[in-house]
């Protein structure tokens, strides 16, 4: 049977990893390739690279990073951030990424999902969704532009629309939980996971191994993503997986 996936996420700016550098104790911890190898060795099932470069030069550097990572890694990886067109997708996938992730650009122009899925297949297209609970309407609403802009989309509606257009996977971040380390947003995750037929990656709020077990059992997530707790070595992929095994969650 299929296993639940643990996915470390690396923020890359102008070709360097920008989170958690000083805490890792690796010789060149700011190098995305070195970090990728480190997580691969630890048992990560997949990696996500988020390109947070603001400049055109930074984006070009990212394609080089993707090439280097692909040359060294024998596990799948996704690249997101700044992918606004079919051309951007081509550039990143040709450089060796296995999947691309789109967020704001997909909300602004949902056809981008359709075009990407048509050209590369659904399995390549991850739609990342940032959602925050809206007390007024009692629902979770979708945000864009790194959480700065509120949209009218209710999260399950947008997730369904993304899948209808060909998204092969949903990367779901709870803005309420993000950075809190108090656990994934189980309600949000379950809601979206039950609304769509494709796998859902839970993101935002991981603080310890127990939270991952909850995300899979209660949150019905297919994979769970975390950044800082892995970067700062508060826990490790191996530790999380060892715990999950004791809880009867199937992992690799």
């Amino acid at each position: 049977m299929i296993t639940k996936r643990i996915i470390p996420c690396l923020d890359v700016k102008d070709g360097r990893v920008v989170k958690g550098i000083q805490f890792l104790g690796l010789r060149d911890a700011g190098d995305p390739v070195e970090l990728a190898k480190f997580y691969d060795k630890e048992g990560a099932d997949e990696l996500v690279f988020l390109d947070i470069s603001a400049s055109h030069e930074g984006r070009k550097t990212m394609a080089d990073v993707v090439e280097s990572v692909a040359a060294q890694l024998a596990i799948p990886f996704t690249v997101g951030g700044g992918i606004n067109s079919l051309e951007d997708m081509k550039r990143i996938l040709r450089a060796g990424a296995d999947k691309v992730s789109v967020n704001t650009s997909a909300v602004l122009r949902p056809e981008l999902i359709t075009e990407g899925a048509r050209f590369f297949g659904s399995q390549c297209i991850v739609v990342a969704i940032d959602a925050r609970f809206d007390a007024e309407s009692g629902t979770y609403l979708v945000y864009t532009h790194g959480g700065r802009e509120k949209t009218d989309w209710e999260v399950t509606e947008w997730a369904r629309e993304a899948v209808r257009r060909g998204a092969g996977e949903i990367l779901l971040t709870s803005m309420n939980s993000d950075g809190e380390k108090s656990g994934f947003d189980l309600k949000l995750n379950r809601m979206v996971s039950e609304a769509v037929t494709v796998p859902v990656i839970a993101s935002g709020g991981a603080g310890n191994a127990v939270h991952f077990a909850d995300a899979f059992k209660e949150g019905k997530a297919d994979a769970a993503l975390a950044a800082s707790i892995f970067h700062y070595k508060e826990t490790s992929v191996k530790e999380v997986k060892d715990y999950l095994k004791t809880q009867g969650v199937l992992v690799r």
Binding site: M1, I2, T3, K4, R5, D45, S122, Q123, G168, E169, T197, V198, P199, V200, D222, A223, R252
Partner: peptide, 16 residues
């Protein structure tokens, strides 16, 4: 079958 066994499509991830 997918519905009954609550399995997602695509079949995505590590399998034995």
């Amino acid at each position: 079958v997918m519905k009954r066994e609550q399995l997602k499509v695509p079949h995505m991830g590590w399998n034995r």
